[in-house]
Design a protein around this nucleic acid. Structure first.
Lengths: 230, 230
DNA sequence: ACAAAAGTGTTAGAATTACACCCATGA
DNA sequence: TCATGGGTGTAATTCTAACACTTTTGT
């Protein structure tokens, strides 16, 4: 298996924009860099791609290594290639966009990162490299995609109340939604199905919990079902 | 500027899916490979990324080198990274998606390719590497994006009749559209403006020619104008 | 005069939006 | 009993989709 292209090649990295939901804000996972360049700065979790792994695997691996978390949704976002995006040398970065279920994440620093923390996306600190730009692109993708693909569920626990779901959409889209219209829409979709569980431990009437039915959704989208969620 | 990551790294390539419009079909530009692997097979135009160019530039350069054409629209599609996608060694490929104005293209073989030709997307031959898959992804992107972004214009000449525009949409979406409803929609958009030119040399009543007004479109989409084209 | 595509409105049905009150529960 | 969010329907409006004929021009 000859090397057919032995000129210098860019290094290849992945960077992950991990979104979560907290109270009434959308949060993003950042790690504090423990090594130069930008040592001490906040950055998106990420790292170099190995020869024996796909990009998706590299993204998953980096997330586990740097924050110990498992994501509910992961998709490739965009590949960034500005010549000067890394001061060391030429690094092309494939950015990923991930959603985590809020109950499961408890970020903890891994080997590469001095620490990891969640930040409100509106109050993120200065970021290393072109990570501010990547975050911006990820936010746009989230806001547009959430309207026609059921990815919002990736930010919620397995079972959720309709109010929780509505809050998630309101936070992502940054505008209020009408409760009755929202519920009508969700009911019409058919893949958000009631469980027989109710909320527990709330100091008020408990809401019914629903779940996202992957099978029903898959069947619908198979048939070219053209959904518009919100 | 020290090399901070001197492990083996994947080679990085770009591949371009260039769409054009011909009579009543959507066509894609393919090149016949002049070198192994897959020598003699048809493939998407593409090549390795140099250290001193961005991915966008690499895509443009490859298109010029391999086919001598200039594109009206170019966007990054997706980055493909299956471990075995290239039999020689590990190659990660950033795929691009391009549209060319039908009057301008006359593909001609460049240095790397023995020949280049347009193929009806429904009748494309077997392709090298994972290029069939890339083509499939590009087609899906075109079909979905054309419905909410005015990229269809990239497939038409500078000035076009509304019938031409409608045909373009019909070919891309692969379904007939209603003439009156189509024109109502286009008129409502506001950025498809009449010129005072008419078709010439047609053996019938000449249609008015329109053009895509970038400025008006930019102003609208600036204001978060949420357009749904078709 | 005829062939061929250009151009033009209306109406029914569907989808979207706006809007307010009673209910169940736990403290 | 009260505070809190859970849960529910209707009417006006807007958008979408279906549909056919007259006009212009070149041959």
């Amino acid at each position: 298996m000859p090397f057919t292209y032995d000129y210098p090649r860019p290094a290849l990295a992945v960077d992950c924009v991990v979104f979560g939901l907290r109270e009434s804000s959308l949060v993003v996972l950042l790690v504090r860099r423990g090594v130069p360049p930008f040592e001490g700065s906040w950055a998106l979790p990420g790292g170099f791609v190995r020869l024996d792994e796909t990009l998706d695997r590299a993204a998953e691996r980096e997330l586990v290594e740097e924050s110990g978390l498992k994501v509910a949704y992961l998709e490739q976002l965009y590949t960034f290639s500005a010549l000067d995006r890394d001061p060391r040398e030429r690094v092309v970065s494939v950015a990923y966009f991930a959603l985590v279920n809020p109950v499961e994440h408890r970020p903890q620093a891994g080997s590469d990162a001095a620490s990891a923390a969640w930040f409100d996306v509106r109050e993120a600190p200065a970021l290393a490299f072109d990570h501010r730009h990547i975050l911006q692109v990820a936010l746009e993708r989230l806001r547009s995609k959430v309207r026609y693909r059921p990815i919002g569920f990736g930010l919620l626990p397995e079972r959720f109340s309709l109010t929780q779901l509505q809050r998630a959409y309101e936070i992502i889209l940054d505008r209020p939604l009408d409760k009755r219209n929202f519920r009508k829409k969700i009911a019409a979709l058919g893949f958000v199905v009631p469980t027989d569980a109710l909320e527990e431990g709330v100091g008020r009437r408990a809401a019914r919990l629903f779940r996202f039915d992957r099978a029903v959704y898959a069947a619908l989208s198979e048939k070219g079902f053209d959904l518009e969620l919100i």
